Amino acid sequence: MSMREGAARKPAGNESTIDLTPMLDVVFIMLIFFIVTSSFVKEPGVELMKPQATTTEACERGTIIFAVDSRGEIHYDKNRVSLDRAMRLAETAKKEAPQANVVIQVDRETPAFAVEQLIDELRPMLTAPPCISTDDEV
């Protein structure tokens, strides 16, 4: 018996193997799909004591988030920004996500004029009224 004849023989018994390659292909395709279609929210990065509200409505597609702290300083993506830079950042974020709305998080001690200035600055690029983030009444 030659070596080739011995190598061509299958081992005795009924051994079968499962090919996992198609399953891994599907898993990787799903992973790529979820990574590509997900949107990441940029948190403003400042701790706020939000005011309470008796009536609230959910803000649809609110993913451009600014925060105005108790000193009237504006924060975006964990950085303090000036009023004119807030407009440029909002325009850039709007290009990335055209359906996104602006959400403004405020502190209980935030001066009203600071929020008004921010809204006035962002008004030209707004497609819907900005949402003000609050806590539910307890």
Results as ranks from 00 to 15, higher is better:
M87F: 08
I74S: 02
G6I: 12
V102D: 09
N101R: 09
E96Y: 01
D107H: 06
T56L: 09
K10F: 14
F113T: 05
A86D: 13
I104C: 01
E109N: 11
S133E: 13
N101T: 06
F66N: 15
C131L: 01
P129V: 10
T54V: 13
I104R: 04
L31R: 11
V103Y: 07
D69S: 04
N79L: 08
L31P: 02
F34T: 05
P44Y: 14
E47Y: 00
Q99W: 07
F113Q: 03
S39Q: 09
S39C: 05
L48R: 03
E91K: 08
R61W: 00
K78L: 08
G72D: 03
L118P: 08
E43L: 15
Q117T: 10
E43P: 04
V46C: 12
K50P: 00
V27W: 05
V68F: 07
G72V: 05
G6F: 09
E116L: 14
I74L: 09
M125N: 04
Q52P: 02
D120E: 14
D136P: 02
L126H: 12
S38N: 03
F34I: 00
P129A: 14
E91N: 00
I119R: 14
K42F: 07
V115L: 04
R71Y: 10
T55E: 12
T134I: 10
P124K: 06
